[in-house]
Design a protein around this nucleic acid. Sequence first.
DNA 1: ATGAAAGCGCTAACAG
DNA 2: CTGTTAGCGCTTTCAT
Lengths: 357, 357
Amino acid sequence: MTEAVSRPTLEAVAARAGVSRATVSRVVNGGDGVREPLAERVRRAVAELGYVPNQAARSLVTRRHDAVAVVIAEPEARVFADPFFALQLRGISKELTAHDNQLVLLLTEGRADHARVARYLAGGHVDGALVFSLHLDDPLPGLIHEAAVPTVFGGRPGWGDDTRTGDHTDVVYVDCDNRGGAHTAVRHLVDLGRRRIAHLTGALDQTSAVDRLDGYRDVMEDVPGGSDPRLVVESDFTPAGGERAMRELLDRCPDVDAVFAANDLTALGALRVLRASGRRVPEDVAVIGFDDVLPVAEQTDPPLTTVRQDIEEMGRLMARLLLRGLSGGRDRAGAPADPPPAGGVILPTALIRRASA
Amino acid sequence: MTEAVSRPTLEAVAARAGVSRATVSRVVNGGDGVREPLAERVRRAVAELGYVPNQAARSLVTRRHDAVAVVIAEPEARVFADPFFALQLRGISKELTAHDNQLVLLLTEGRADHARVARYLAGGHVDGALVFSLHLDDPLPGLIHEAAVPTVFGGRPGWGDDTRTGDHTDVVYVDCDNRGGAHTAVRHLVDLGRRRIAHLTGALDQTSAVDRLDGYRDVMEDVPGGSDPRLVVESDFTPAGGERAMRELLDRCPDVDAVFAANDLTALGALRVLRASGRRVPEDVAVIGFDDVLPVAEQTDPPLTTVRQDIEEMGRLMARLLLRGLSGGRDRAGAPADPPPAGGVILPTALIRRASA
DNA sequence: ATGAAAGCGCTAACAG
DNA sequence: CTGTTAGCGCTTTCAT
């Protein structure tokens, strides 16, 4: 398992190069203000000794860590069945890496973990946090607010309007246009001539689910008979939930001719139940999902028509916004950058037509 | 986005409690050697001030970080289609959390990232590393060896025998009994009366794929005609790869009556092709997978018979072994713990019978 | 059992 | 432009 060995310090490099520690420090950190012959000598010493700066020592004085926490709060199941988080993580990882920041992953599974996360964030171990998957009753935002850590949320927080955590004018989040995307999807079904269009919702304690439901209703209120409450069945973003909801829907409304599922996983479950019931997709019932998670949407039978959102880009953007905020509105060269946006950034969605609708 | 604020220091707590910094430090770190009335005063001061130790300062002197890097090296696709990594991550996260260690996630996508990871590991930012998904030609092990960071590998490294990175007697890894599991699966197919049993391999630059192939061969060499090379088709652990391989197999051996797929995802692809070809599972062709990733195995049609390995436990075990090694063979109370195992730990597998075989 | 003091390795004024 | 000098906040001998 290999024991760790002691590494050379700034001091050692300075001695080797015959300069002061300060000079070495300057060279190591970008090297402006050190004349060439000297700088080169230092660089060589660094290389020869294999010097790597001690981050702890550096953080102690700079109060920066070049590390960002990613907090994923999901009760058990979903995080790992859904490629969604993995994709966002990848986007985040890429962006952070590009800016020499480390990704500290904080997985939480319930109340017990909240305190731990709060303590960690408050402990000033990281420069900022990226927080996901908030549910409406989640205590995390409050804790984070207290911890006073720069934070960007993934998905519109549901508590933006209430007063639970005080002033929220400075909340930054990234989300996709859930309502608009849902609108487009349902509109598409209408244009296809469908009239009994149902919606299998996501977990309604998350804003994404609520917004998609709203988008569905936006369209349906103009459809004759479209306000039939039986057409909306609550589900939870999982394939199993999708199956359950679809079964119930078939029970309530055997005449359904289209289904807008809150995400691809839900659509997957619905597809299975539809097939089992002997209905053809899309001939008898058209199905549209949401997310366009490729491993799912491209592989269903038939391939899924769905609302695409650029998940990886969302992650990347979250990281970018956080880092921008951290650098105090200047980029690395010190040039003024765009100011951090107030409130949220909404990414566009697009309807991807495959075979299911 | 909230600006970070300055946090109370040890000094402040000491002042508040009317004691020296040393005393506060003792209380904060377990509190032995401080008499009760005093200790209590300190604890109250800590609570009142909301004191949280500065990890950077602490690391600077202790040279510990209470942080572990998780290195996942996968070219693009697989990491995120396969719930496998997510499950291991969860196991790791739980174990690390239980020991107050942080998880630093290092995702790599190709050569360019290797240098970065090596630098990070060598930089002494973390106490140890958990490394996954090595491919036979991966340069990472060598770099890690140079970095001299305590490491536990996920999956048997393929380079244990060669001399590329010098002495490897101290390599620690966790894996499941790939060969034995494969043996059991194929044996089961034989017991079912099948004779034309094929194998869709995993990516053969990974030991898990090689070992499963070996397990298959162990059984097949005793089956009449079982050594027919056409029965083995190379694939890559993905659903798409499974489809491709299954198509080729059907082409080569239309009389195949059973398939052992290298993992569940491969089986998923195979199942789709079998259905499309009009064959019934398991009546015409029995199918067995490997992994027992629930969201996949339970949801296929028909539900998949597969070889179960406890993925989350693997992750947990890796973390436990690493932490044990780090603590120098003593547990937290200072009592002697089991010595870190030499070489690998192999977890058992079990055949889970569902409907596909 | 408690306190005083000496750094851990680095950056950031400040001098020169 | 380069070197000198203070600490950053904490743990850890070493006295007491």
